[in-house]
Structure formats: structure tokens, C-alpha cells
Simulated scan of single mutants.
Amino acid sequence: MKVRVIKKHAKSIYTKSRIPGVSWSINQYVGCAFACEYCYAKFLTRWNDYGRWGCWVEVKTNAPDLARKHVSGTVVMSTVSDPYQPIETELKLTRRVLRYMDKRNELSVLTKSPLVTRDIDLFKEFRTIEVGLTINGFTGREKRLFEPLTPVHEARVNALKEIYEAGLRAYAFVSPIIPGITDVSAIVEDTRGFTDHYFFEMLNLRAAGREFQELLREEYPESYEVLTNDEVFGTFLRKLKGEIKALNVKTDGIETHQKGWELAGM
């Protein structure tokens, strides 16, 4: 799929974040060619006429200069894009942002791409940094339906290992957890020896959008039922908490996005 590139001159690059525990987000790209069907950032298409999510990417051409600013608190890269999506191979915008960023900034990088290992040399220049790979274990039919354009599971696991073995703090972002599909225990076993911390996140069905909701209901009705029935969801969540506790890994709990279940502590 050909991706339209829209060049923008931004006024700022650091945006105040509403994510708990995160002070700032930084997005040198807006939009993502990985085009995951469940992506929560699809809401951005409401305010532009670029077309379907995944077929365009905004590029903030002056992002490296704007990144020089020193900010207090945690900075997350990125929240409405993937900093290592395919276009980064050619443009190297993320690499230039990292090069010019104030190394005193407390940075957390999250991606689905093994391209992240290219920038290990720059990561080592930061005083405080962690690098995470989104790992959900989707293969076969699930991957074709949910995220056909993303790097495969094994490539992400290998990238996480390389980050860890380089002496950097590495974390696994296990997301989205979809009942009956995401095998949390298998993911932990695949990454246990080279992961400092785990984040577990249930699928946010509402944020995933109507099209994905219909896809899940048609193709995986039992999974859809768990996510839309409070009683069934509660039972599933309790079992999942027990499963994660038995795995004995470092985590803050399970992000659920469900009313009354905002963070399921361990």
C-alpha cells in the first residue's frame, strides 16, 4: 500500500499528556503506516481529509530542532504514531530527533518495529531511558485480520532481547490483550530472560472503533462477548490477574479501560 507523506512545520513537539504517570508525549510523525485495525489513534481522521487510517503519515520536518527543549517528567515516544514505522528507514527523522533531544529528558520509547535497535547508540546517551516493544503474539489468521503490516512476533522479541543485552532498560508492552486470542503466559515465557518490566493492557474496544468492533463480533464472537458483558469480563479479569501473578513478573497491573476497572492492581 502506497502511503501519502504530508510534510508539516510544527510549532511545538512536546505535548502535555493525560496518560497516568506520563508528563509529555512526543510525536515527530502523526499517523502510522502499520495501519493496525484496532489502533486507538484512528480518531485523528475526524479532523483531516487525508483518507483512511494507515494510508497517510504527517511528517514534522522541523521536529529535530523542536526536540532540543529540556522538559521535566517522563516523555513518551510516541502516542499517535510508531516512531519506527516503515518511512523512518528512509527519512531517519526519529534518529535526528533523538540526536538533538536534551539527554537529560526522561525518555520512554515504544514501538512494534525491530528498526529500533538501529538507534541503540543514541539511547545510551540519555541519563534515563527505557525502550519497549509492543508484543501481542498475533500470528496466522489473527495477524492477517488485526495487523497484517506489522513486524512479526519473533522479530519484536529478538529486538527486545538486543535492547536488553545492550545494557538498556527494556520493557514488554503486552497489548492488546483480547480474550481467547492473546496468550499472555506464552508472551512472558518468550521474553522472560530479557525484560525488566511488563505492561499489560486489555483491548480498549470503544477506542478501537466501530469497524474493529464489527470485525471482532463477526470473527470472534466469544471474545466480543467477554469484552461487552460486565459480568463475564469481571470473571475473565480475575483469572487473568491470577495468571499474571503466577508468572511472577514485575508489573503495575492490568490497564483495562473499562468503567470501574481502570487499573486492575496486582
Rank of each mutant, 00 (worst) to 15 (best):
I254K: 04
N105V: 02
D230V: 09
D102I: 12
W47N: 07
R46E: 01
N62W: 08
Q213I: 01
E165C: 08
V76S: 09
L263M: 11
K92P: 04
A207D: 03
P83E: 13
W24K: 06
L203P: 04
L227P: 00
T128E: 15
I19K: 15
V30E: 05
E90D: 11
G242R: 15
K143T: 11
E37L: 12
Y14D: 02
M202F: 12
F34P: 04
W261N: 06
T94L: 05
I87C: 12
A10Q: 04
T235Q: 05
T79M: 12
F173E: 03
G242K: 15
R192K: 15
L44G: 01
R96A: 15
I87P: 05
E165N: 13
Q258T: 09
Q85D: 11
R217I: 06
P86M: 03
E130G: 03
G73Y: 08
E37G: 07
A264W: 08
F236N: 07
I129R: 01
E211I: 12
E147G: 06
V232N: 06
R210A: 13
W24Q: 07
K161T: 06
G167K: 13
V22I: 03
E201Y: 10
E243T: 14
A67C: 12
E88L: 00
Y100M: 00
A63V: 01
L107P: 04
S175W: 14
S72A: 14
E130H: 08
K143Y: 04
K112A: 11
F126N: 01
L66N: 02
E262P: 03
K250M: 13
I177S: 00
A208F: 04
D49M: 09
E201L: 10
R99T: 14
A33N: 02
E106I: 11
V184P: 09
G137K: 04
G265A: 07
Y171G: 04
E147V: 09
V3S: 01
N248E: 13
Y220M: 15
I6E: 10
L215R: 10
I6F: 08
F34T: 02
I19C: 13
R217N: 06
N48L: 08
K161D: 05
T74W: 14
E255V: 00
T256S: 04
V80A: 06
T150N: 02
T134A: 13
L205H: 06
L216M: 11
M77H: 05
S23H: 08
M101H: 07
G265E: 07
G54C: 06
L240K: 09
W56T: 02
T94C: 06
V249W: 12
G260E: 06
S17K: 08
M202N: 11
M101A: 07
G140D: 13
A207H: 00
R141V: 11
I254H: 04
Y84K: 02
L91M: 15
S185W: 10
H197I: 07
A33V: 06
R104F: 05
R68L: 13
L160S: 06
C55R: 10
K60G: 02
V174H: 01
K69M: 12
Q85G: 03
N204I: 12
R18Y: 12
M1C: 11
L145T: 09
V226M: 09
A166S: 10
L149E: 00
I13G: 03
N62E: 10
S113W: 02
R99M: 14
N105H: 05
V75F: 10
A166K: 07
R169A: 06
N248M: 13
V22K: 04
P151L: 12
P221A: 03
Q85E: 11
F34V: 08
A170S: 10
Y84P: 00
